[in-house]
């Protein structure tokens, strides 16, 4: 009797932390898109968005760790420790647990490279950070298909909501990128916004007005 209770406790803990992890990772992806587009949350300064993105990702790792440890300890199915990080090596549902392992590996890679960001090239860090989308998608598929919990009821609606939110964020990101101010013009745009008395032209210099250079003058 005692053994069964312990067993169900691990089973519940694993499922619950899995759901919370998915929610946290979804939040991290949404905030990441916002950081990338230099967006803001209402009432919060921009650097708070960056801080939230980072702290939420670290919290997500804690929940993922509990999720994985409890799943391994849970005697309901036998999962070998190596299957946690080595994709598709599990005897039980190799594909869907494998996606979970991929997601875990990617999340660890993202966290470690971000912690070491100051010591590595920006370009490398940035290209690695693109993997966060793959990590989220594999986590979602893993959540949906390794158990039936998310396939009906409130948890299904939650999963659909998470998916829609990330899809919407990606669409926003893509369309927003198209309307982005080219970096050469960013300072001028801010200056125009800040100056009630005139455009970006330095006062006293020969050209007047806030116009862009005429196309025929551009080399």
């Amino acid at each position: 009797m005692n053994g069964i209770t312990q067993s169900t406790a691990l089973w519940y803990a694993s499922r619950a932390t899995g759901v919370v992890s998915l929610l946290l990772l979804t939040g991290v992806v949404l905030l990441g898109v916002l950081v990338n587009r230099q967006g803001r949350l209402p009432g919060l300064p921009r650097f708070v968005v960056t801080g939230l993105h980072r702290n939420l990702s670290l919290l997500g790792v804690v929940f993922v760790a509990i999720h994985v440890i409890t799943a391994v300890l849970d005697p309901y199915v036998t999962i070998r420790i190596v299957a946690i990080v080595l994709p598709f090596s599990s005897a039980y549902k190799p594909l869907w647990l494998g996606l979970g392992a991929i997601s875990l590996d990617l999340v660890l890679a993202l966290i470690l490279t971000s912690l070491a960001r100051a010591r590595m090239s920006r370009r490398l860090w940035r290209s690695l950070h693109w993997l966060s989308y793959a990590a989220w998608v594999s986590a979602l598929l893993h959540s949906l298909f390794s158990s039936t919990d998310l396939q009906h009821g409130v948890l299904l609606y939650l999963t659909i909501a998470c998916t829609l939110a990330v899809v919407a964020a990606v669409i926003w990101r893509i369309t927003h990128a198209g309307r982005e101010i080219p970096r050469e013009e960013r300072a001028a745009a801010t200056l125009t916004m800040m100056s009630p008395r005139g455009g970006p032209q330095a006062p006293g210099s020969p050209r007047d007005g806030a116009r862009r250079r005429a196309p025929e003058n551009v080399r």
Binding site: P182, E184, E185, A188, A202, G204, R207, R212, R213, V218
Partner: peptide, 12 residues
């Protein structure tokens, strides 16, 4: 000061 400002990619 130079007369021009850097407002286009070609300037860089």
């Amino acid at each position: 000061l130079p007369a021009d400002t850097a407002l286009a990619a070609a300037d860089w």
